[in-house]
Nucleic acid binder design. Structure first.
Lengths: 208, 208, 208, 208
DNA sequence: GATGAATGAGGCTTCATTCAT
DNA sequence: GATGAATGAAGCCTCATTCAT
């Protein structure tokens, strides 16, 4: 049940093999993440793909539609994972644990998309086309904040904290990791999740 | 003892009233932070300042030099604060507390600059001109990581965590706040610092 | 009896002391000659004069009017000298000798103006304002070519040469010297004139 | 054995038809020569070529690189010709005759480039990129001055002249012709060379 | 006489995009 | 599927010029 809709295509752009598309989008995502969307030229992407700038337009409508497809694909997959977790009927603490772990898995698989999302979503939401980013954020907040509230009610989270602050704290703590995470590094996503959870839940000071 | 160097000026830059410069830099920083450096046109800044695009060049060499001045001014002031803390001879836990509090104060005073720093520093460091960002990062890591290490040795921080991961966790946790913080909001920087420290040090799960 | 007219002035620009004007024009001429008129910014001239660009407009209407005044002043003085020679009733060979000598004297006194004239007059003549350059050129050609013709008729110049070519040869030979001549060098203008005349009249091959 | 270096190219410049490049460079050279490099706008060149200003940048890096290519191409060809002459083992007088003739041929084929060279080389040499102009000038002086010296030693040139002055005299005499020469005029380059040589070698006064 | 600050026009360049081949 | 060449809009920056002080 994806939130995002891939925007309608004017020109019958079916012919291009979906594999080549995915390959090109991967390259584009990497460059967008490294240099920023605005600073990335279509030519740079084409260079990286071993073709000329104009040739990209056989595969995609525009630079923006590449960005769109990268972000919406990522969000679709993210919500697949989140929805599975949320539907599992876990307790609040276990839900948080599962969401954090799932998040690091997504960072592992979509590092570039996540980095782009972090950097660009703020300005993007002003555009009609990217309104689905707002929808996603709303659902996101509902899921996390709701779980935190359930947890406070259940006594598994501290009651003396500002919950919105706590929400932002947990959310940022996780996602900002995309800025330094490198797939194939020494820590698996699950291992990183475990350590993060340990800090978030129990703090960095030793328990008495 | 600032890390940053104010770039050499061929032409008698800054002969004019430093007040106007600061005013314009404030406007520029706001726009850079809101739209991203690359996406910000010089005309947009000028519009905001009520002048024509070309007129900005009476005060600044280039768009890039505005960015430079915004960032280096911020870093100079940041290090003023940090150095004071680091020279105070506090224990590791108190040092972390003081650094976090100082950081939120800087976010309060330089919100735009911090947001720009977060978003742009990655690509900027490739340029000679912004090499001081790297220097600052190195010092930054040394200060934080060193304090964490001292804390582990002293037994005031947990010994079972990957320290680099912990460093990133604490660092990001603090600075990412610039992305949503709005000066003059309901929480003072000190109050936010207190809550953050509470979470970072003790976790969000209740102590037994 | 100057050929050139200093263009009419809209604003009563009398107040500026003529000495300061001449001083500033000297500076401007030097820069125009060194960098080319178009490549010279008003600010560069002002820098050289120790003032700000805007201040020059107290003394002059425009950059172009500086150029105008530099060139017309030079041409006025040149024609003072030429007219004296032409009115002296000399024979053709002596006239050529006197004109060449007078030319090197002008180069000595107005090196910058001459260099500017060489480089810029071609495009300038298209403008109404600089039409006097054409007038001067016409008179110039008349004086030199006429003298050469008289000389051929009198048998003091070779009859087997294309006279227009000869005219250009002599003319260029003399004036192009402004591109390398430096006042105060080892050769006086008169000495250079003597050597040039020796080459032009007798050639560089030894006489049998 | 060209003196000039074709500047390094980051981007695969010149992948396209060299014919189009040469065509465009020809147009650019013509405009540069007519109006001066600085006074020539990129749009003017594009207009002349029947395209938009931006389109030129498909073929060239910058306005400056057009100038560079025009000058270096000219100098390469000039030195091809000169080197052939210098390697031929002629006597000094015959060498001078051959160099002058070759020079007029180059003026005939590269009139615009020569005119540009005359007008712009002075300021250009200050830039790293155009340092090859200095190299060329040094070689040029060596070739001409050396030949003159040989000639004086051999008794075929007068011994009573300042040789540096003579060198400049001959050099300027020849090259300044580019300012008025029009290909396809009534005189062939060889005919002009013959007359120039006659004047330079034997003077304009009749031999006794 | 000069300064400080701004204007406005225009210049060079970049870049997403198009399209005939 | 891709290339080569071009378009057109827009961006950064320069500079002659103006004018209140």
């Amino acid at each position: 049940m994806p939130t995002t809709k891939t925007s309608a295509k004017k020109k019958p752009q079916a012919p291009a093999s979906p594999e080549r598309r995915r390959e090109l989008l991967g390259i584009a995502a990497e460059v967008f993440a490294a240099q920023g969307y605005n600073a990335t030229t279509v030519r740079k992407i084409a260079d990286e793909a071993g073709m000329l700038a104009g040739s990209l337009y056989y595969h995609f409508d525009s630079k923006e539609s590449m960005l769109d497809e990268i972000l919406s694909t990522f969000l679709d997959e993210l919500w697949d994972g989140y929805d599975t977790v949320l539907a599992a009927g876990l307790g609040p603490r276990e839900t948080i644990e599962a969401l954090v772990t799932e998040s690091f898995r997504e960072i592992d698989r979509h590092r570039a998309a996540v980095a782009i999302y972090q950097k660009e979503s703020r300005h993007l939401v002003d555009q009609e086309r990217f309104h689905y980013l707002v929808d996603s954020q709303v659902r996101f907040e509902k899921a996390w904040l709701g779980t935190l509230e359930r947890g406070v009610a259940a006594g598994v989270f501290r009651a003396d904290l500002d919950l919105r602050l706590t929400y932002r704290f947990v959310r940022d703590t996780v996602w900002v990791a995309a800025s330094w995470y490198r797939p194939g590094g020494q820590h698996s996503p699950e291992e990183i999740a475990r350590q993060y959870l340990s800090m978030v839940l129990d703090g960095i000071a030793p328990r008495a």
